[in-house]
Design a protein around this nucleic acid. Structure first.
Lengths: 65, 65
DNA sequence: ACTTTATGTAAACTATATATTACATTTTCA
DNA sequence: TGAAAATGTAATATATAGTTTACATAAAGT
């Protein structure tokens, strides 16, 4: 399944590099998060969510049954 | 203001050590998170939320105006 | 008072998130 | 179709999350 950060980023019409710059991290960091190969810090998750006008739950929470 | 993890933990009647053990981290890690002296990883935040029957937003999201 | 139990804290260590640089591949579009 | 833009990826370096051990203090119960 496609990563939710990626979807939200594309909805905002941002490239990885643009999102990374707004947040203050590198493009690579965003790329790895979108490939689910990273365990980002809470602060970074919050920064991503705010920049994409989403919440933590929107982007990083899987509802358990 | 009192940390939301601490409140949720006490509501579940768990000590820092008990919560830490359920999650698989040390007591110190929980203590530091409750004192807002840490930037925990997303995986750890998710584990804490699940263990306390909360969501990421419940424990780690401040609503922006 | 005394003993447990819970929490605070600190130093040294280890694991890993993130940066930096660089190059390759894919996508887009003139 | 060819150049530019976007993304993938890899090696090395650095910052910091999280561990381990240890001790001190605070609460709570007997």
């Amino acid at each position: 399944m496609v990563n939710k950060v990626k979807i939200a980023r594309i909805e905002k019409d941002l490239t990885q590099a643009q999102l990374a710059q707004k947040i203050g991290v590198t493009r690579q960091t965003i790329g790895l998060i979108e490939k689910n190969e990273y365990n980002p810090s809470l602060q970074l998750c919050v920064a991503i969510a705010e920049t994409l006008d989403k919440t933590l739950n929107d982007l990083f929470w899987e509802d358990k049954k």
